[in-house]
């Protein structure tokens, strides 16, 4: 019996010694990156080209796991429950703040530690080809005449819901929301004229060129060189700048040494020219913040999200 105890104690002691060593030798095995949306979607398309670059700088394979469902909260929950050892990364965007205040999930951004902000994808207000409006002004006029009748396809409680809701508020109009989760179903619905408006981004430019979609306005500070004819919302008199911001988090409790290594590797990967090229093709710009800057940025974003959700009446008590 005593021998057994002694062995146990020795093992425990060894394990205790091994802990910091584990952080030091990090990473020793492949790292899983949880993307809470489907493969081939916008978020996936941004993290997929990033993964091999991060792999190059961290020295271990990055394996993307698309854990989808329930507005991205299934993946969030799984990331939260993963061991905080740096072997699980969580690819996140603004939805984490929104779904929390919408009461969809109890998972919060503060259940995680920040690693880096990677990209910003400006939202574009997009109309179906079957709608009569050519410009925002025509839409606004029509919307005032028919409150609550113009339909918007959106993932409820997420960015594609917030963006049109901000426009509603700024322009004093009222839309009707129809749930279409994800960009691909929204595109199907809008091409067929089953909804009138939706939030999209510059990746859909091909359809606009073919006359099958209409870009009415972009929610960026200035016009995009890729689509110089699309006015900004600011030009149209609405103070709305809205972009989907994507970054990486790790579960709370991940050792500081491990986070530092991830932070450094991400910084190098995000500065690769290849990444900037890949992002341009996604209608996105690289918008890098390191771990130290990303933390306060997320705090601010969370406060703003709470205000927006409450103001728009989307927050649950």
């Amino acid at each position: 019996m005593r021998t057994v105890l002694r062995i146990l104690a020795a093992t425990a002691a060894l394990a205790a010694m091994a802990m910091p060593a584990a952080a030091q030798n990090y990473p020793e095995r492949p790292i899983k990156m949880i993307v809470p949306w489907a493969a081939g979607g916008d978020t996936d398309n941004i993290f997929r080209p990033f993964a091999p670059l991060l792999q190059k700088h961290i020295g271990q394979p990055i394996v993307i796991a698309n854990v989808t469902g329930a507005s991205g909260t299934v993946g969030a929950r799984e990331a939260k429950g993963s061991p905080p050892d740096g072997y699980t990364l969580y690819a996140v965007h603004d939805y984490i703040h929104l779904v929390h205040y919408a009461g969809v999930t109890d998972v919060k951004y503060s259940d995680f530690e920040p690693i880096c902000l990677l990209s910003a994808t400006p939202s574009v207000l997009t109309a179906s080809p079957k709608t009569p409006w050519k410009t925002w002004a025509e839409l606004a006029e029509d919307a005032k005449k028919r409150p609550g009748q113009i339909t918007v396809g959106a993932t409820l409680g997420s960015t594609s819901h917030i963006f049109p809701a901000l426009i509603e508020k700024a322009a004093g109009v009222k839309f009707k929301y129809v749930s279409y989760e994800g960009l691909a179903p929204r595109m199907n619905a809008i091409l067929g004229g089953h909804v009138d408006l939706t939030d999209s981004n510059l990746t859909q430019k091909g359809k606009v060129d073919a006359g099958q979609l209409k870009f009415l306005a972009i929610a960026a500070e200035k016009r995009d060189p890729e689509a110089p004819d699309v006015p900004t919302l600011k030009e149209l008199g609405m103070d709305i700048v809205y972009a989907v911001l994507r970054g990486l988090l790790v579960p709370k409790g991940t050792p500081a040494a491990v986070r530092a290594k991830l932070d450094e590797a991400c910084g190098k990967a995000a500065k690769e020219a290849e990444f900037a090229d890949a992002m341009k093709k996604q209608g996105t710009r690289v918008s890098y913040l390191n771990a130290a800057e990303y933390g306060p940025f997320l705090d601010k974003l969370d406060r703003e999200s709470k205000v927006i959700m409450t103001e728009l009446g989307l927050a649950k008590q």
Binding site: N45, P49, G206, D209, A210
Partner: peptide
């Protein structure tokens, strides 16, 4: 899209 090909009706 990763290869930069604009998919769409004109593809």
């Amino acid at each position: 899209t990763i290869h930069g090909i604009q998919s769409g009706p004109l593809f």
